[in-house]
Structure formats: C-alpha cells, structure tokens
Design a protein around this nucleic acid. Structure first.
Lengths: 198, 198
DNA sequence: CGCGTTCAAAACCGGTCGGTACAGAAGTGA
DNA sequence: TCACTTCTGTACCGACCGGTTTTGAACGCG
C-alpha cells in the first residue's frame, strides 16, 4: 500500500505469500485456517500480514481472486470451447484435475472453504456463494449462445442445463474431498458425458 | 448413563436436545457450532451436555446417527424401490426435499458440516467422509442387484453409476447451500433423470 | 547525513474456545 | 427421616482466537 519506492522495501514476495495462504484456506477452510497457520505457511508474521493484506477476511477475498484466476481458471477457459459438449467436458475434466492435484489439497477451495454459514465466516461464505452462482450464470449464457448457434437444440433449456452441469461439477468437488482419486473423478465425467443428450 | 431410576432424574429431554443440536451443526457446521450456541439451543448448560453426551465430538457423532436415521432416512428407503431408475429418482428427490426444508437449515449436514479437514474437526470430517462413501457403496450394491435382476443392462457398471449418482446428490446439497430453492433442485433431478440411460 | 517510511519481531489485548471442579438442589429407595 | 445418587448452575481453567500496539532496525531519498 502507498508509494512503493518510499521506505523500506517489503522483505517477502506478496504474490508467493498469497499463494501459500491459498493452500492453507484450501486445505483447512476459512474457519479452520487460523492466523498462526497462515503466517507460518506464508513465512511472515502477523503484523506483516495485516499491513500487506488487511485482515483475515480481506486476505481470503484476495486468495479467492487468485484461485479463480489460477487453479480455477479452467472454468473460464472451458467457456471458449467451440461446442456445448466440449464446454461441459472441459469444465468437468478441469474440475476433476484441479481437485486432485498431488501438490494441492484435495477438493475445491471454492466449495469447501466455507460451505455452511456461521458467525465467523459469513463474509467468506457469501463471497463463495456468489462465486459459484456466477459461474453457473456464465455457463447458462454460454449455453444460450449454443442454442442461438444451433449447437444445442432449440428446445434445450440453457438455465436447466447449466444448473445441472454446475451441480455435477460441485459434486465432483465433494467427491474429491471424499478421497476419490483423479481417475475415479474422470470416470464420473465419462459417465456424465455418456449420458449428455440435451 | 448409569441406572436411570436412581438419583435425580434428568431435567431435559435428551432426544429433543439432540434434535436441536443437530440443527445447530446443520446450519453452522462442526467448527462453526460453538458450545454456547449448542447449549443455548439445547436449553441446557455445558455440564449437562458433557454428562449426557460426552464431549463435542461424541455429541456430533450422535447427531450424525440421528441425522442418518431421520432427515437422511430417504437414502435408505430409496434403495427399496423396485427399479434402479426409481431408486435414483427417490434418492435425488429426497436430497432435494431434505436440503430445502423450510424449518431446517439449507443444505445437507452430511456434506457441509465438515467438508475440509482441519485440526479441530478431523474426527467429524472423517466420520462424514466414511458416511458419504458408505452411502455410495450401498447404492452400488443396489445397482449390482439391478444388473443381476436384468433391471439394468448386463454391461452397466454398478460402481460407475453409483459414483455418478452420488456425485449428483452431493452436488444438489451444495446447490442447496447456494440458496437454490426446492423447485430449482427438483428441476435438476428432472434433468438428471431425463438423461438417465445406463 | 538525517528524515520519513516501512519493515519485522514480540508483547499484548479482550474475547472465546472446549472442557472441569465444585457445591448445592432434587430426586430415589430404605 | 435418612443416606445416596445424579442432576443443575456457576465459577473457573489454560489455550488459543483474530487483531492491535509497541519497539527498533532497515531502507530509499533528498
């Protein structure tokens, strides 16, 4: 914050610190990630954390942005596939891959970081609900385009299809948290695609 | 605990206290449910809670049993349907209904109470993972029977189908936590069933 | 150089966490 | 009535929570 050229330069890489914080929230959830766990992983102390990121809530929101652009970037890229079917496949395979990376926690940060709402995590919970619902809306818009293009049948319902596919994607995230490995999740995608007949 | 006829009788209904505790865990999750919130809802104080239920972990495990037999009882009953398709429909409609009851928290206790694992909730987390995975195994066994009976085609894969259906059910639980209403979830079930062609 | 700014480490804050110890009240059976 | 058991309420425990303040050193710039 403030002018970057004045004063003592920051002794840590804020970007890498954010990356490490992301992994802590990813693994333990918002409430389960205590400040000491965060600062230990980030390699900084609490004062530096507050100076650089505000507080726990704001840190989490920054982490969520980073997650959306990084590990969850597959969701955006999937929308660029040429056909609705290819969009679905890219989205679900991306979910299966991202939730089972060997050097990242199992599951999806966007799903498991704050699924129930309690007093302490309301801000994170609401941000995540909005994040997930927004992803569904983007998918719906993409399906609507597919209908316009004749890629999907005229009587297909973009909203219903998008909600369904989002549900499978979020279910995959839960299955990853259940310990299913990547192959098992990819077979879920296979099964979903085998039935895909909008 | 101990002889029920000797000593001062318990001043509260343990069964109803358990029911209220279930709602607290359901809404706030395991970590988000602090002892004061639990005792307030249960109408007892901490000493009584510990005497009657052990500790927070054990209370949660008792709550989970109650949840499995109560609100989540639809999962057991669904297995008794005569056809695989009817099983799937009963399971998913039960999930849609149970996660959107007007006088219960949104979502599924079994999914959202402890999805990520942290230091404080490891016991609950593991119990829930096992609970969800066991449900999938039961479903797989049911599908295997359906193959034997000729209800499902001989080349159907009971394991893959059960994993897929479990994934949709768990996805529905997440969508309920996202705030989708009962009708929206039932339309997800409609979409799933429309595509059901094992 | 010295000034201003930002760093980092630690002590510290009130509050709350899950869990207990204790004492008294309330019921039982004899 | 009595001893006995088990209840309840309160006060309390150490540990840790998220967050702040203090302190002093490190640094860029004029």
């Amino acid at each position: 914050m403030g002018n970057a050229t004045i004063g003592r330069p920051r002794g840590f890489d804020a970007d890498e610190a954010l990356e490490r914080a992301m992994h802590v929230f990813w693994e333990h959830g918002y409430e389960g990630a205590c400040l000491t766990a965060l600062t230990d992983a980030m390699g900084i102390n609490k004062t530096s954390l507050y100076a650089a990121f505000g507080n726990k809530e704001q840190l989490f929101l920054k982490v969520l942005d980073r997650y959306a652009d990084g590990p969850a970037g597959y969701a955006q890229r999937a929308l660029e596939e040429p056909t609705a079917r290819a969009v679905v496949e890219a989205l679900l395979r991306g979910a299966a891959e991202t939730t089972t990376r060997p050097d990242s926690p199992a599951g999806c940060l966007g799903v498991q970081a704050a699924l129930p709402a309690s007093d302490g995590n309301r801000c994170a919970h609401e941000a995540l609900v909005e994040w997930r619902n927004t992803a569904a809306v983007r998918l719906e818009e993409r399906f609507r385009r597919a209908v316009d293009e004749g890629d999907l049948p005229a009587d297909a319902d973009p909203h219903e299809l998008a909600t369904y596919v989002s549900t499978v994607a979020q279910g995959i995230a839960v299955q990853a948290a259940n310990g299913l490995d990547r192959d098992a999740l990819q077979r879920i995608v296979d099964t979903t695609l085998r039935q895909w007949a909008p």
